[in-house]
């Protein structure tokens, strides 16, 4: 389903990001354009089979999000290759495609189409999305009049109304009030347990142990360990102490 072969990602970092032609020329003349190479990922190889749940653990800045971006096609690896068969639905950040001047209804179709859902699918699932979000009559109100909790609820409802081949989850999202949090957590677990291939990033070892078939431990862009969930988690937990 997913096959990563020696994936490496290199960022070039300048100390001052040059953002204008003038600055660029000035820096160029001074010979001051210095880049610092930074390998966010180095030689990562793994394979995920259909229906497997792969957990990714590591400290902040270990390259977890970069890896997810490479797999979802947002970022091209500097070297190496990723082969993905099937539709990837990323659940990286909720509501990034919302337009706050449009109504909830219009946003469902806009955001849904950005996530790659078809028109037919969205029309079928529309009622389900509205019902799950508990927005009721507010669905025809422009988003700028929503409370932030309502926006998150709508975003969550759209994002989880999927039947993707590959689901990418960056932390289990639990939004809204206590009731909705409970409901959304249940929904996520349902989705992940439903037989789809899942890439799951979390800082909660508990969740990882519970959900995953296989775990990758990333550390400063390097793959420190890959293998059986309990083994890797134990090693990771041991290293933290």
């Amino acid at each position: 389903m997913i096959k990563a072969d020696k994936v490496s990602v290199k960022y070039l970092m300048t100390y001052d990001r040059v953002k204008s032609i003038k600055e660029y020329l000035v820096q160029l003349v001074k010979g001051k354009i210095q880049y610092e190479e930074f390998w966010a990922l180095k030689n990562i190889s793994f394979e995920v089979k259909r229906g497997e749940v792969l957990g990714i653990i590591g400290h902040n800045g270990a390259g977890k999000s970069t890896l997810l971006k490479v797999i979802s096609g947002i970022l091209k690896p500097t070297s190496g290759s990723v082969k993905v068969n099937g539709v990837v639905v990323p659940m990286l950040e909720l509501g990034s495609g919302f337009d706050f001047d449009l109504t909830g209804r219009e946003n469902i179709f806009l955001n849904g189409s950005i996530l790659g859902y078809s028109e037919k699918f969205l029309k079928e699932k529309y009622d389900e999305i509205v019902e799950f979000s508990e927005l009721g009559q507010f669905i025809d109100v422009p988003l700028r009049n929503y409370s932030s909790g309502m926006v998150m609820r709508l975003a969550f409802s759209i994002a989880t109304m999927v039947q993707p081949d590959i689901l990418i989850v960056d932390e289990i999202l639990a939004v809204g009030d206590a009731d909705f949090k409970e409901k959304s957590k249940k929904r996520m677990l349902e989705l992940m347990g439903g037989g789809t291939t899942v890439l799951f990033v979390s800082h909660s070892l508990e969740q990882i142990r519970e959900m995953c078939d296989k775990v990758i431990w990333l550390d400063h862009g390097q793959m420190k360990m890959i293998g059986d969930t309990q083994e890797v988690c134990d090693a990771y937990a041991g290293g933290m102490e």
């Binding site: 947002i74 990286l92 990034s96 495609g97 950005i114 996530l115």
Partner: peptide
């Protein structure tokens, strides 16, 4: 915001 999060 979209380009860095969703592949289109």
């Amino acid at each position: 915001a979209l380009i860095t999060k969703v592949y289109v």
